[in-house]
Design a protein around this nucleic acid. Structure first.
Lengths: 234, 234
DNA sequence: TTTATTAATTGATTTATATCAATTGGTGTT
DNA sequence: AACACCAATTGATATAAATCAATTAATAAA
C-alpha cells in the first residue's frame, strides 16, 4: 500500500504528500504506471482545465489550489456543481459515458493538477477490483451530494440555499475559520442557484443577524448551528 | 455471456427476458450466485420498496411495473429523482456510502422487484472487474442526468421544466405514444419541482398550443420538437 | 496621481410561481 | 341513488426573488 511507503521521490505520485483516497487501493507498480502517464500542469486563476463538450481524454487530480466545476448555460449564467480541493480527483462522469466532458473545470487560485491518461485509469479499474470499488464509493458519495443539491435547489428558499453553500465551504473546502474565499459573489450565487444581487442581500442579512462576519472576501462562520437550522427550516 | 444463453429457467435471473445491462458482464456461475441470494417480491401501487433512512441491505432490480424514486422533505412535499422501469437496477448510492437509503422507492403500478443481498453484489464488484466497470458506467450516466437535473431546476422556468419531464417520460419511460401515465399530477409536479396547480396550468397551455394531447391520464406528445425547443429556450 | 474598468452594493420595480380558496369531476361505499 | 372522499381544475391573491438601474468600492492601467 502506498500509504505505508517510506520511499519518497520528488514530483511523483508516490511523493504526493496527501494522496487522493482512491490511490490507496493501488499497488506501488500501479502508481508507477500512473506516474509514467501523467502530466503535472500549473494553472493561473481563471484558466480552464477542461471544458464542457470537449473530449475527455484525461482524469484530473488536483494537487494544489482550488478548482471550480460548473455547467454552462447561456453566457453569464453558470451553475457551479462543486469545488475540488487538493489532493482529490475530479469525478467527471464523461470518460465513462461518451468521452466528452459534461462540465467545465476552472482554476480559482494558482492551481496544479495532474492529468492522467483516461485509458490508464480505465485499465486499472478493469484489473484492480479494489480500485474499482473505491471509485464506485467515491462516485456514490458524489451522487448523494447531488441528490441533496437537487433537493436544496428545488425546495429551499434563498436563505436555506446560501446556508447550504456556506456549510459546504466550511469546513469542507476551507478548514480554517475565518477564511479567505477565492470566489466572486457571482460564483457564490452560481453555487446557490441565484443572482449575485440576491446572495449579497442574504449575506448582508446573515451578517446583521450575527451568523457570519464578512469583510470583502474574508468570511467567518460565527453561528454554525443557526446556519444548520436555516438550511433545514429556512 | 448470459445474453447468448439459450437455456431458460422460469423465475431465475437467466430466464429474465430482458436482463438488466449490468447482468451481461456476469458469467453464468455469477448469475446463479445472484439467483440463490435474491427474493422476488410483488408490490401493489403505492407500496414502499425501500425507505429513505432505512438500512440498505439489498440491491433492487425492477422486473415488472414502474418504480418512483424520491427524496422526502416536509410531509406532502417530495422531490421525484426519477423512475425505474423493467428490467433495470435501481442505482441507489446507499450501499456504497453508509449502508442507508438516501431516497425512497415506491411502486407506481403493480410491480415485481428482485431484492439481491448487497454483500453478494459487492463481492461480484470486487471479483469481476468487468462487472465493476459496468456499474461505474451506469452510475456515471446517472451522474450526468443529475447534473442536467440540477441545471434544469435552477435555470429553467416552469415551462422548460415540464418539457424536460415530458421528454423524460417519452420515450424513455413510456415507449408508446399516446401513453397512459401511472402518475398523479402531484407526482408530475414533484418530478418538475413545482406545485400541482402550476403543472396543471402548464399542461393546459401545452394542450392549447397543440404540443400535447391530454385526456385524464392519457397523454400524447404531438410536437416533440417544440418541447425540445422549450426545454432549451423556455 | 489620475483615469479606466470591473466587482460589489443598494434601492425600486416587475414577474414568475406559490399559496389560498372554491369548484368540479371521478371513484368507491353503503 | 345518495353520500363521502380524494384528485383535478380554475381563479384570485400574495410573495419571493429576478430584473433593472444607479451608486460605490476596489483594482488595474496610463
Amino acid at each position: 500500500m502506498v500509504r505505508n511507503m517510506t520511499v519518497v521521490l520528488s514530483n511523483t505520485c508516490l511523493a504526493c504528500k496527501q494522496p487522493a483516497d482512491v490511490f490507496n487501493a493501488l499497488t506501488v507498480d500501479e502508481v508507477e504506471k500512473i506516474d509514467c502517464n501523467k502530466s503535472s500542469v500549473d494553472y493561473k486563476p481563471g484558466e480552464i482545465i477542461f471544458k464542457q463538450g470537449a473530449p475527455a481524454n484525461s482524469f484530473v487530480c488536483v494537487t494544489s489550489g482550488l478548482v471550480k466545476l460548473y455547467k454552462e448555460h447561456h453566457p453569464g449564467s453558470n451553475l457551479v456543481i462543486g469545488l475540488t480541493k487538493p489532493v482529490n480527483y475530479i469525478f467527471e462522469p464523461g470518460p465513462f459515458v461518451n468521452h466528452h466532458h459534461h462540465i467545465t473545470a476552472v482554476a480559482c487560485e494558482y492551481t496544479t493538477a495532474c492529468l492522467i491518461d483516461a485509458h490508464v485509469v480505465k485499465d486499472l479499474i478493469s484489473t484492480n477490483p479494489h480500485f474499482a470499488s473505491e471509485i464506485i464509493k467515491k462516485i456514490s458519495f458524489l451522487t448523494v451530494s447531488l441528490f441533496n443539491r437537487i433537493s436544496s435547489c428545488t425546495q429551499k428558499h434563498v436563505y436555506g440555499r446560501v446556508a447550504d453553500t456556506l456549510l459546504y465551504l466550511y469546513p469542507g473546502i476551507y478548514p480554517n475559520n475565518p477564511f479567505e474565499i477565492a470566489l466572486s459573489r457571482q460564483d457564490l450565487a452560481d453555487m446557490s442557484g441565484m443572482t449575485k444581487e440576491s446572495i449579497i442581500r442574504v449575506l448582508k442579512k446573515f451578517k446583521e443577524d450575527n451568523i457570519i462576519q464578512l469583510e470583502g472576501n474574508t468570511m467567518q462562520i460565527i453561528d454554525r448551528e443557526k446556519l444548520e437550522f436555516i438550511s433545514v427550516k429556512g
